[in-house]
Amino acid sequence: MLELIEVTKVYRGGKRAVDGMSLRLGTGMVGLLGPNGAGKSSLMRIMATVTRPTSGRVLFEGTDVVARPNALRRVLGYLPQDFGVYPNLTAREFLSYLAAAKGISARSARARIDELLTLVNLTEAAKRPLGKYSGGMLRRVGIAQALLADPRVIIVDEPTAGLDPEERVRFRNLLSELAADRVVLLSTHIVSDVESVAADIAIVAQGRLRRRGTPEDLLREIDGQVWEMLVPSAHVNAVQSRFVVSRMVRTPSGVRMRVLSAVPPVPDAVPVTPDLEDVYLDVLQRSSAGTAVAR
């Protein structure tokens, strides 16, 4: 449905944010994972038709949306990482304006806005100026605007930033439900945001797609390569300099460390079941080391 073909984005000054990336998205949710500065937001902006790629093509149902962005914009719900609002408009007025900008009829917009305000728990605050909203409430307004036009493609960039834990879970569930019959692309650097809801995970680093697959496939790739061990405090630095450490917990008897290694790092290390955070760190480690990642 939505396809990127060899997309590259080079900013003025030569910064190559996206480097020849190809990605094909169909119905369902893809979790886009990557560290800060990996090129996720640039990629999201290109897919949302906000930024034009330096080279490459973006196709939506066969239409090149770089040349004809409106083909996608009419059915797109986009929640950028950072956005603002008109501070003196109420949530209802703001959404009503955006609905008009989407080309939605008045009656349809009214009904939709009511439903969306309920969905994001802002009905009671709908008459207050947005300038008096908290960060989390504004985020929910952003979520509501992304769903205004009953989008077929939803692109959300770090959507849970600023949400409290309950709202985060609720939003993840919402995305999960939406993904049943839509294309949903969720970008984040928080592994827990995607591991519970995304059946398809893409990991990007340094502007390139480093790994893609289901969580099971990705976990299988590092099966037997994650270890836990108890290390005296004095040896922590030595371990850190030799292995990728995914977690450390100080205990009275030493530091319990979780490390990635193809072989047991110390004789008494215990193999443990890998999780997505281990996969993520493994991929980042390999990509920063310049290792070929396509396995």
């Binding site: 304006y97 008009a100 008045a106 349809s108 009904a111 969306l116 609720r170 439900e177």
Partner: peptide
């Protein structure tokens, strides 16, 4: 509660007649 599936909007989205509201919004 948090595990509840949120109730998605069900109303149909109909296009059209939006310029006057766009102007009003501006």
């Amino acid at each position: 509660y948090v595990a509840d599936a949120p109730r998605l909007p069900r109303s149909a989205v109909v296009a059209g007649g939006s310029f006057a509201r766009l102007l009003w919004g501006e």
